[in-house]
Amino acid sequence: MTDRSLDLLIDEVVLGLASEADTARLEELAARDPEVAQRLARARDRFAPLDETADDLPLPEGFWNRLAPRLDVSEEASPPPEPETAGAEVIDLAPLRARLNRWRRAAVTGIAASLLLACLLGWSMLTPSDPLVVAVLLDDRGEAIALVESGPDNTTRVTLLERPDVPAGQVMQVWTKPDDDGPPVSLGLLSTGLSRVLSVEGLPEPHPTQLYEITFEPAGGSPTNLPTGPILGKGLAKEPVT
């Protein structure tokens, strides 16, 4: 299979357009090949924001109570072979089963709670924590064009305040100067022309008066890894009063 047809198969499986046979084939491939599994996971992540757009419906009353017996049934559908009871010594399994069911219920609640927690954690990791510094970037006419908020780990939320006029074939690149006297360092590209959260590793914690700026660079980012294009806006960071 070519790379491109594999990518298409992955996308069709994620969208739900692939046949059952194709889906099974891809899942088998992913189980054997971690690279395919990674690509599948990335494709799922690309479309995952659409799951967040559904109405937030509360689970109806009694949902968990109705779920618990189904979990028991699902296990009992394929019961493990019970050993023949030999001799006169018969063990009554009923109380044991009842105890096991109680444990299962507790476990279900536990799983539900941990899944919820996982979702919340996932969400909080995507959302930068309280920013350590905030900068308002101004253009050369003094108009505010973007708000930059950066956390201790340099996870940086860039909120554009105006829809910028990006020249064809160019892209916005976000820069900062971790060292006031050092060179600017790229935080990433705003390749879709929209606001986004950028993350970068290996930089010191941002500090007040740190410079942030956005420049127009050739598609793919500055070839020299230093700003080359015109400045859309720049500003110095300040520490928010909390």
Partner: peptide, 28 residues
């Protein structure tokens, strides 16, 4: 949703964090 949670319960051992988030797995 109930059936999905039953499947999650039965396949919990298959969940592999290196292949995507728990949330993504659940929604899939």
């Amino acid at each position: 949703v109930q059936e999905a949670l039953v499947l999650v319960w039965r396949r919990a051992h298959q969940f592999d964090e290196s292949r995507g988030s728990a949330k993504g797995w659940l929604y899939t």
